[in-house]
Structures are given as C-alpha cells and as structure tokens.
Amino acid sequence: MLSTIAMILSAIVGLSLIYLLIRTIQGHPVERRIVFVYIGLAVVLPLLMNKTLPLPVTKDVRKLYDRLEQLQPGSKVLCAFDYDPPSAPELQPMAVAFLKYAFKKDFKIIIMGLWPQGPQQAQQAIEEAMLDPIIAGKNLVQGEDWVNLGFQSGNEFVIQSMGTEFKRMFPKDNRRIPYEDIPLLQNVVNFSNVDFVMNFSAGKPGTYEWVQFGVDRFGFELGAGNTAVQAPMMYPYLRAGQLKGLLGGMIGAAEFEKVLNEKGKASTFLLAQTFAHATVIIFIIIGNLAFFASRKKKTAGAR
C-alpha cells in the first residue's frame, strides 16, 4: 500500500520537475529551498517503495571477494575500523556484510581502530552480525573467535609500531584483558601472523596510511572499504596491487552485499541513491538553463 502511494507520488514529483524546467526557461529561477525539498522527496519516496535494483558487481569488488574466498577457515583477519558515526551510513553496511561473511567462514577477527569511535562502530557491527541465525548458532566467543583491541592514538605511528609488535600498541583489549591472556592472540606477534588486513576508512588516518606505512613496509595483504569521497584517490593503489580490492561508497557496499549474498542496508538504499542522483542531474540542467537564460537577458538588456 505504502509502496504504491510512494510510486504514484514519485511520478507526480517527476512530472513537476518538467514544470520547473519550463518555468526556468521562461526566466523564473528556482529558489534553493525548493531544490532541498526535491532532494528530500527523492530520498524519502524510494525508501518507502522498499525495492532493490539489479546491480552488476564491478571488478574491484569481485577482486576482494575472490581474495577472501581463498582464505582458509581459521585464518586471522585484522580489521581496522577507521571511521565514526557521521560516515556510518556508507561504511557500516560494508562492515556488517564483511563480518557476517567472515564469521560464517570461521575466520578469526582481530578488531582495532585508529579513530576513537571506530571500535564502537565495530562492536555495533558485531552485534548486528550476531543476529544472523547461522552465526548465532556458532556460539562465538569473544577472545577466541574475535577480539576487539580498541582504539590507539598516534595515527600512522601506530601502524609503524604494529609492524614490530601488536602488543606494544595494544597491551590490553577493550575489556581490559591483557594481550597475552587472550587465546586468539597467542601466536599473533605482528603483521606476519595475520592472513589478511581489512580497513574501513572515512579519511585520515585510513587506507592511505595503511598502504604507505603498512603494505609498503610490511608487505601484508590489504583490502579496503572507503567512503565515496575517498575512493577515487585509492585507484592508483588498486592498480598497482597495493590494495587487493576496494569497496567505494554505498554502491560498493551494495555490490559487496550482492557478491556475498547477504541482503543488507546498502542494497535497500540503492534506489534512493539513484533517484537522488537523477534529481541532482536534472537540477544541474535546470541551473545551467537558468544561467544561460539570465545571461541572454543581460546581453539583450545591454543592447
């Protein structure tokens, strides 16, 4: 019911855009608040429709998946959560999908953060992943199947230092249990004892630092989930093989959910994202028309 109303409303909103276009050509510019209203509608209505879009999985996401598939059960994966709640809409779905997949594959997860709120985001993602019936059935134990080492200040210096020994940077986990008393970490000295590193990053410190101070110096394998703002800057590293795969923004998250076969938030957000982009493009056209119309008027006035 709600979804049908939303579809009808979307059609009306779409038609009204044509009206705006005509008004602009006639020389009546659109007020900024109207633009805000349209963007708002472009996000709200598709969410109400509750539909998913068919989505091809791009090479960069596929590469990450293929690499993860090669890891054996029991592989130790270090997950660096370098983001905070403001970037959660893009990165949290990736993290949840990743953790669900990792727990199902029986990977051992070591969580840490270079951002103070990162490990809290991780904790939330773990709680969400645990709701999955298959994972709940595994009765995973903190300290044996996963561990949260918490946050450490020092940005890139932390990575540098972890290269010799993790324990130096994380003497205790987030439950204040000493590093040496955690079963999962018994044979984990430094990067050479983990099989893969996954980084979820919203800025600095983040993937850039993990590549320059981690991969380039200690040679481990790194996969990354980035906000869309940051993703284009990471392509050179992807091409050079310093990154094993990249999830960029909400689209990247949705593709990852698809390839892992985990229906999550990102897939349901995709339609809203598409509508919002379409609206932006239409307003760019309207804006340019208004600009040229006003210029024409000015030159005509000057004559």
């Binding site: 969410l47 109400l48 869309a228 923004g249 909400m250 689209i251 919002a276 982009h277 932006v280």
Partner: peptide, 23 residues
C-alpha cells in the same frame, strides 16, 4: 568533475542514512 560526482554520491548516502533513521 569526477571527484565532485563521487562526493555528491557520498553526501547523498549520508542523507539516506539519516532519512532511514527518521523513517
């Protein structure tokens, strides 16, 4: 221009996240 597009995508995702919370 390309970078702008990516960032618009990011910002829209944040808005969607908030609207998802509200709704």
């Amino acid at each position: 221009g390309a970078s702008f597009g990516y960032t618009v995508m990011s910002r829209m995702s944040l808005l969607i996240g908030r609207v998802d919370f509200l709704l």
